[in-house]
Amino acid sequence: MKNNLKVLRAIHSITQSDLAGKLGVSRQTVNAIETGRFNPSTLLALKISRVFGVGVNDIFELEDGE
């Protein structure tokens, strides 16, 4: 699953630490989501979309073949 979390963080000028604090997770988790090593749960994905004010589909995208 692809995501543009890094881009959204850059646009909103939010560091990984800040985002992790807002979501209640560790910076390791945010980094793992950005690098594709970890897929967030529905709850966490909705929290991310609420932080950035965009829909979940605007953040996460299925890769070809999924």
Partner: peptide
């Protein structure tokens, strides 16, 4: 090991699109 994979937080103002 997971913590070791996390790079130092830089002031990352740029990113990549999809």
């Amino acid at each position: 090991i997971g913590n070791g994979r996390v790079p130092d937080e830089r002031d990352n103002r740029s990113g990549e699109d999809a």
